[in-house]
Design a binder for these strands. Sequence first.
DNA 1: ACCTGAACACCGTTCAAGT
DNA 2: ACCTGAACACCGTTCAAGT
Lengths: 208, 208
Amino acid sequence: MTTRRGRPPRNVLSRERILLAGLALVDEEGLGAVSMRKLARRLGVDPMSLYNHVDGKDALLDGIAEVLLAAIPAPPPDAGLRETMSALAHSFRAAMLGHPRAAPLVLSRRLASMTALAPVEAVLAPLLAAGFPPDRAVHGLRAVLAFLIGTLMREVEAAPTFSGAHRLAELEGSGLPAVAAAAPFLAVCDHEAEFAFGLGILLDALEP
Amino acid sequence: MTTRRGRPPRNVLSRERILLAGLALVDEEGLGAVSMRKLARRLGVDPMSLYNHVDGKDALLDGIAEVLLAAIPAPPPDAGLRETMSALAHSFRAAMLGHPRAAPLVLSRRLASMTALAPVEAVLAPLLAAGFPPDRAVHGLRAVLAFLIGTLMREVEAAPTFSGAHRLAELEGSGLPAVAAAAPFLAVCDHEAEFAFGLGILLDALEP
DNA sequence: ACCTGAACACCGTTCAAGT
DNA sequence: ACCTGAACACCGTTCAAGT
């Protein structure tokens, strides 16, 4: 039986359906391609219908950012300080790399919502439990978050594996001696290693 | 005498004039308000004339980002490693804070130009001189840069001094215990201190 | 070489009207 | 309560025409 009583409504719009379709649109075509009209087309609906569930384009983008944020899993509750922070950092990174074209929404927008507070709580709790005074804990949180945002912004905006050879030659011929000397390492970027290196420095500094 | 021989041409367009007017437009009205048509209006020129000097809107934004980057002064050449890195970090920050609404162009776009390489050289040179092997020097550069980008993204996107009291109450009533406990420190952000704290950690770690 | 203006295919959002 | 479509004031960019 393909229909129940009253058959399932074909085109129920909802905030959630809109945000998910929006995220899919960003994933496929990039942030620049997002428009209310195109999203409506994709949902088989009049553009104006979206405004019944979402406050406008800007609120739509904020909503998509929150969908991404909400996908960050909570860290294991029994872990120590360092493992907790590290797990959260890696989860955050994985969530962003899972939607690289949408990630800038999270990385560059001021999100004041409750959703954004859950990861904050998850970082702050072990810091306070480890005996950090609240002001120091917030300092630490913000330093790590700044590094995460900066690193991910780079990963996510990076060209999809620049050919390398051409880049190398360019750097070596730049006329800048230090740049030329380090050219082989500037031409490529092992994002994984870069992430581990910087995160390690910061977590070391937060060891009680 | 208000005119010299042949009188100064009234409406000479040039790439430089366009980029500077673009930066002024961003400063005054924000990134979202930038359009080729509005910029042309501001320059007293047909919109299409801009295309003779700039490759399109995206290239315009890249050009504005480079104007910002070019304004970063070189560090004093005789300083030690730490002072050089610190001076550059502060100069970078000052340049961005001088144009907070345009800063995201620098912070979020992949800039492959020569202009972007000058600060790289300025950081790399003292690291290599201090005896860092090139791969480690690049690691250090990237960690500091990630932190700078993340910090500045936060400073620059921050609401112009959120009322504070309202925010505080919101955090305390969030139901999240660690967030509530640290609420007084989460509600405000001393960007200067935050910057010094994180930068200190990273520069300490790069001490030879 | 540079500037112009018309034209094309789009935007976000308001508003009055429908169910 | 939700959806629709026309309308308004915009966009970026192509193209043919001017100087």
